[in-house]
Simulated scan of single mutants.
Amino acid sequence: MNIKTLFISGTVATSLLLGACNNMDTKKEDMEEETKSETKMDNKDMGESKSMKEGMFKGENKEKVEGKAMIHDNKLMLKDFQSSKGPDLHVYLTNDGDIKKGKKIDKVDYDKSEQTFDLKGINTDEYNTVTIYCDKAHVTFGSAELK
Rank of each mutant, 00 (worst) to 15 (best):
G19C: 11
C21W: 07
C21Y: 11
C21R: 14
N22Q: 13
N23E: 08
M24Y: 11
M24W: 12
D25H: 11
T26R: 07
E29P: 01
D30I: 00
M31I: 02
M31W: 01
E33H: 09
E34S: 06
T35F: 08
S37E: 10
E38Y: 10
T39K: 13
D42W: 07
K44P: 06
D45L: 11
M46C: 09
G47H: 12
E48W: 04
K53P: 05
K53H: 10
F57G: 09
G59Q: 04
G59F: 07
E60W: 06
E60H: 10
E60V: 09
N61D: 12
N61K: 10
N61A: 11
E66K: 14
E66I: 09
G67T: 07
M70I: 13
M70K: 15
H72Y: 14
D73M: 12
N74G: 11
N74E: 15
N74Q: 15
N74H: 11
K75I: 11
M77I: 13
L78Q: 05
K79V: 14
K79M: 14
D80M: 10
F81N: 06
Q82W: 12
Q82N: 15
Q82P: 04
S83G: 08
S83R: 07
S84F: 06
S84P: 08
G86W: 09
P87G: 13
D88C: 10
L89M: 08
H90Q: 15
V91W: 03
T94H: 06
N95M: 14
G97L: 07
D98I: 13
I99M: 08
K103V: 08
K104R: 15
I105G: 03
V108I: 15
V108L: 04
V108G: 05
D109V: 09
K112I: 12
S113I: 07
S113W: 05
Q115G: 03
Q115Y: 02
F117T: 01
F117L: 01
K120P: 03
K120I: 05
I122L: 02
N123F: 00
N123R: 02
N123K: 01
N123E: 03
D125E: 11
D125Y: 03
E126I: 02
E126D: 15
E126R: 14
Y127T: 04
N128K: 05
V130Q: 02
I132R: 02
Y133M: 00
C134D: 15
H138P: 01
T140L: 03
T140S: 10
S143A: 10
L146M: 06
